[in-house]
Nucleic acid binder design. Structure first.
Lengths: 192, 192
DNA sequence: TGTACATCAGTGAACGCGCGTTCACTGATGTAC
DNA sequence: TGTACATCAGTGAACGCGCGTTCACTGATGTAC
């Protein structure tokens, strides 16, 4: 059943989008080609007309997820709005649509070389994005990169920690503590 | 081939230790019962005389890994020594012996309910340990818990970020930035 | 514009492999006498 | 203390299942005339 080129291109995008969501939700290893194809409204056989292998799909999915993360910081109304969203209970509960580094970073570094490389590129990209945004809102000069790295570390670690605990009280305590940390970081003298 | 009770108990410990190492190195899903048994010097069949299932093993392994993390903070010479070790290139390169939260936290929250619960207990435990140590070295009062959460978040996120990048320069930049962050946190007025 | 045909996206059965788990069997342990 | 036997930790073959990948086939697309 051949379909038009436009439809085929849409299918490819649908597969990539489905993979990007499912991977964040369940991890690379717990998502099968059939799951991804089904979420995209196709059967597993069709997958291989769009991607050479699961590994190839993973590489593209990681790139897409990383880009999404960079766009989220760069296009946020302001950094506070971004922080509030990142450190929200909603984000804790919905990894499927959320930060890919927090959801997949741990296992990402154990994947094949190409996926590892995609994570490396993504990490460099998100650090640059943070540094740009932070350097712009208030000129921190050289410290902008350090500030970016510190913020990203706290955000990723904080989100993961918030996902580990079970009570809402613990979760909110963590989200607040990390929010406070980054707030203090930004307003502190650059000697910090 | 029955063995003495002492030997059997040692085998159980060896299985647990092997699992705890292999899980951190490769993740829960990429380590098979046969791998674990082999690393412990046994065959896969023997596994089931010690553990009811892989899931049961995971629960115990997570508990063991979390305990190891708490012990590491509590028994470090001092907090600076702990930080230096946690944020060392060695730790970046050797997840097998390192922090289980950084290595497995991301996928841990997607495991079965019992494993999730083990992670929740482990998270609470490590927060308590950090708060105790930090509250002791300098009385931060109520802020000790927030300080603990902030430190843990930055450490876990920073370690993961350092594992994602490929160049030593990037890695060292990240380790230094996170070290600086926590240093500043500890010396800052509690209003931070 | 209309028609014939080659192309190729999609389908679903099938293959091979790895993994968690089970089980009949082995033989050393440790207990009962 | 020595002996006979029940116990049970460990072995390795086997089972069932899921998953990545392949492939013969289908039928709509889009091109050549």
């Amino acid at each position: 059943v051949k379909v038009s080129k436009a439809t085929a291109a849409a299918h490819r995008q649908a597969l990539l989008a489905a993979a990007s969501r499912l991977f964040r939700e369940k991890g690379f290893d717990r998502v099968g080609i059939a799951d991804i194809a089904a979420e995209a409204g196709l059967t597993h056989g069709a997958f291989y007309t769009h991607f050479a292998s699961k590994e190839a799909l993973c590489v593209e999915a990681v790139a897409a997820i990383a880009r999404q993360g960079s766009v989220a910081v760069r296009e946020a109304r302001d950094f506070d709005a971004y922080l509030a969203e990142y450190l929200s209970p909603l984000h804790v509960a919905a990894p499927r649509e959320g930060c890919g580094f927090a959801a997949l970073g741990g296992e990402g570094v154990r994947q094949g070389d190409d996926v590892r490389a995609a994570f490396a590129r993504g990490a460099a990209e998100i650090i640059d994005s943070f540094a740009d945004v932070l350097g712009q809102e208030k000129p921190h000069g050289i410290a902008a990169r350090a500030l970016a790295i510190q913020s990203i570390s706290a955000l990723i670690g904080g989100l993961q920690l918030a996902r580990m605990v079970t009570s809402e009280a613990e979760r909110d305590e963590i989200l607040t503590a990390v929010k406070d940390l980054i707030g203090a970081l930004r307003s502190a003298p650059s000697t910090l």
